[in-house]
Amino acid sequence: MLFLEYPKCTTCKRAKKWLDEHHIVYEDRHIKEQNPCVAELKEWHTKSGLPLKKFFNTSGLLYKSLGLKDKLPTLSEDEQYELLASDGMLVKRPLIVDGDTVLVGFKETEWTENLL
Protein backbone atom coordinates (compact mmCIF):
# COMPACT_ATOMS: atom_id res chain seq x y z
CA MET A 1 0.00 0.00 0.00
CA LEU A 2 1.24 3.45 -0.95
CA PHE A 3 0.48 6.41 1.33
CA LEU A 4 1.14 9.79 -0.27
CA GLU A 5 1.30 12.64 2.18
CA TYR A 6 2.64 16.08 2.93
CA PRO A 7 4.15 15.60 6.42
CA LYS A 8 3.17 19.09 7.67
CA CYS A 9 -0.50 18.54 6.74
CA THR A 10 -2.66 17.93 9.84
CA THR A 11 -5.10 15.72 7.92
CA CYS A 12 -2.18 13.59 6.72
CA LYS A 13 -0.94 13.28 10.30
CA ARG A 14 -4.40 12.09 11.42
CA ALA A 15 -4.55 9.60 8.55
CA LYS A 16 -1.09 8.24 9.32
CA LYS A 17 -2.02 7.86 12.99
CA TRP A 18 -5.17 5.97 11.92
CA LEU A 19 -3.12 3.61 9.71
CA ASP A 20 -0.64 2.99 12.52
CA GLU A 21 -3.39 2.39 15.10
CA HIS A 22 -4.91 -0.22 12.77
CA HIS A 23 -1.50 -1.84 12.14
CA ILE A 24 -1.74 -1.24 8.41
CA VAL A 25 1.60 -1.54 6.64
CA TYR A 26 2.29 1.14 4.04
CA GLU A 27 5.03 2.75 2.02
CA ASP A 28 5.25 6.45 2.86
CA ARG A 29 5.81 8.94 0.04
CA HIS A 30 6.33 12.69 0.45
CA ILE A 31 4.06 14.18 -2.22
CA LYS A 32 6.14 17.34 -2.63
CA GLU A 33 9.51 15.57 -2.90
CA GLN A 34 8.23 12.67 -5.03
CA ASN A 35 5.46 14.21 -7.07
CA PRO A 36 3.10 11.78 -8.83
CA CYS A 37 3.74 11.57 -12.57
CA VAL A 38 1.06 11.79 -15.27
CA ALA A 39 0.97 7.99 -15.76
CA GLU A 40 0.42 7.38 -12.04
CA LEU A 41 -2.28 10.04 -11.85
CA LYS A 42 -4.13 8.60 -14.85
CA GLU A 43 -4.00 5.09 -13.38
CA TRP A 44 -5.15 6.24 -9.93
CA HIS A 45 -7.90 8.42 -11.37
CA THR A 46 -9.24 5.51 -13.44
CA LYS A 47 -9.16 3.11 -10.49
CA SER A 48 -10.78 5.61 -8.12
CA GLY A 49 -13.90 6.16 -10.21
CA LEU A 50 -13.85 9.78 -8.97
CA PRO A 51 -14.08 12.93 -11.07
CA LEU A 52 -10.59 14.27 -11.81
CA LYS A 53 -11.40 17.49 -9.93
CA LYS A 54 -11.40 15.44 -6.68
CA PHE A 55 -7.64 14.96 -7.13
CA PHE A 56 -7.01 18.70 -6.81
CA ASN A 57 -6.20 20.24 -3.44
CA THR A 58 -8.84 22.95 -3.82
CA SER A 59 -8.11 24.43 -0.39
CA GLY A 60 -4.38 24.77 -1.07
CA LEU A 61 -2.58 28.08 -1.48
CA LEU A 62 -1.12 27.11 -4.86
CA TYR A 63 -4.54 26.14 -6.25
CA LYS A 64 -5.92 29.50 -5.16
CA SER A 65 -2.95 31.58 -6.32
CA LEU A 66 -3.14 30.01 -9.80
CA GLY A 67 -6.86 30.82 -10.00
CA LEU A 68 -7.67 27.20 -10.81
CA LYS A 69 -11.26 27.44 -9.61
CA ASP A 70 -12.06 29.35 -12.80
CA LYS A 71 -9.42 27.81 -15.08
CA LEU A 72 -9.98 24.11 -14.32
CA PRO A 73 -13.30 23.74 -16.20
CA THR A 74 -11.65 25.09 -19.38
CA LEU A 75 -8.71 22.65 -19.28
CA SER A 76 -8.68 19.28 -21.05
CA GLU A 77 -8.20 16.13 -18.98
CA ASP A 78 -4.61 15.84 -20.26
CA GLU A 79 -3.89 19.44 -19.27
CA GLN A 80 -5.28 18.74 -15.80
CA TYR A 81 -3.03 15.67 -15.44
CA GLU A 82 -0.01 17.74 -16.51
CA LEU A 83 -0.93 20.42 -13.98
CA LEU A 84 -1.30 17.89 -11.14
CA ALA A 85 2.03 16.29 -12.09
CA SER A 86 3.76 19.68 -12.09
CA ASP A 87 3.55 20.18 -8.30
CA GLY A 88 2.62 17.78 -5.50
CA MET A 89 1.01 20.64 -3.58
CA LEU A 90 -1.80 20.69 -6.16
CA VAL A 91 -2.71 17.07 -5.38
CA LYS A 92 -5.33 16.34 -2.71
CA ARG A 93 -3.87 14.41 0.13
CA PRO A 94 -3.51 12.06 1.78
CA LEU A 95 -3.78 9.60 -1.04
CA ILE A 96 -3.92 5.83 -0.56
CA VAL A 97 -3.16 3.43 -3.40
CA ASP A 98 -3.65 -0.26 -2.67
CA GLY A 99 -4.10 -2.44 -5.73
CA ASP A 100 -7.38 -1.33 -7.29
CA THR A 101 -8.32 0.79 -4.26
CA VAL A 102 -7.56 4.50 -4.47
CA LEU A 103 -8.72 6.80 -1.66
CA VAL A 104 -8.37 10.58 -1.93
CA GLY A 105 -8.45 12.61 1.27
CA PHE A 106 -9.05 11.18 4.73
CA LYS A 107 -12.57 10.12 5.58
CA GLU A 108 -12.40 7.66 8.45
CA THR A 109 -15.59 5.79 7.53
CA GLU A 110 -14.45 5.37 3.92
CA TRP A 111 -11.03 4.17 5.03
CA THR A 112 -12.57 1.74 7.50
CA GLU A 113 -14.85 0.28 4.79
CA ASN A 114 -12.04 -0.08 2.25
CA LEU A 115 -8.96 -0.91 4.31
CA LEU A 116 -10.08 -3.02 7.26
Rank of each mutant, 00 (worst) to 15 (best):
E79N: 08
S59N: 10
L66C: 01
N114V: 06
K13V: 14
R29N: 10
M1V: 11
S76R: 04
L75C: 05
K92S: 01
N57K: 07
A39D: 13
N57P: 04
F106K: 00
K107W: 11
L84F: 02
H45P: 08
R14W: 10
L66Q: 10
D20T: 12
L41P: 02
A39S: 11
K54L: 14
Y63Q: 02
N57R: 09
L115N: 01
V25A: 14
A15S: 15
D87R: 06
V102H: 01
E113H: 12
L52D: 01
F106E: 01
F55Y: 09
T112H: 09
K54D: 15
T109S: 14
E27P: 10
G88R: 02
L68G: 00
P73I: 02
T74R: 04
E33V: 14
E79F: 03
P94W: 06
T46S: 11
E5L: 13
L19N: 12
S48W: 09
G49N: 09
R14V: 14
G60Y: 02
C37D: 15
T109A: 13
E5G: 12
D87S: 09
E108V: 15
I24D: 01
L84E: 01
A39H: 09
R93E: 01
D70V: 02
K13D: 11
L41D: 04
W44S: 06
M1R: 09
H30T: 13
N57Q: 05
I31D: 08
T101F: 06
G60T: 02
Q34S: 14
K69S: 09
Q34L: 13
N35T: 14
E108L: 07
E110I: 11
S86W: 01
C12Y: 10
L4W: 15
L90P: 01
V91W: 03
F3N: 08
E27F: 13
K42Q: 15
W18C: 05
H30G: 09
K64F: 06
I96R: 03
K107M: 10
W18R: 03
T10L: 12
L61I: 05
D100I: 04
T46W: 05
V91A: 04
N57T: 02
E40C: 06
W111A: 00
K16T: 14
H30L: 12
K16H: 15
N114C: 11
Y81N: 04
A39M: 07
C9H: 05
L68D: 01
D98S: 11
F56M: 07
S59Q: 11
D28K: 15
E82P: 02
E108K: 14
R93L: 00
V97E: 03
F56D: 03
E27G: 14
K54T: 13
A39F: 07
L95S: 01
P36S: 06
D87M: 00
W18S: 04
G99A: 08
V97R: 04
P7C: 12
E43V: 09
K16R: 15
L62D: 03
C37G: 14
K107D: 10
L2M: 14
K54F: 15
E79Y: 03
L19D: 10
V104Y: 07
L116Q: 12
D98V: 00
F3R: 07
Y81L: 06
S48P: 08
K13I: 15
T74L: 08
E40R: 05
K92Y: 00
L84D: 01
R29Y: 13
V38E: 11
L66G: 06
R29H: 12
N35G: 07
Y26V: 06
C37F: 12
E5R: 12
N114L: 08
L62C: 02
F106L: 01
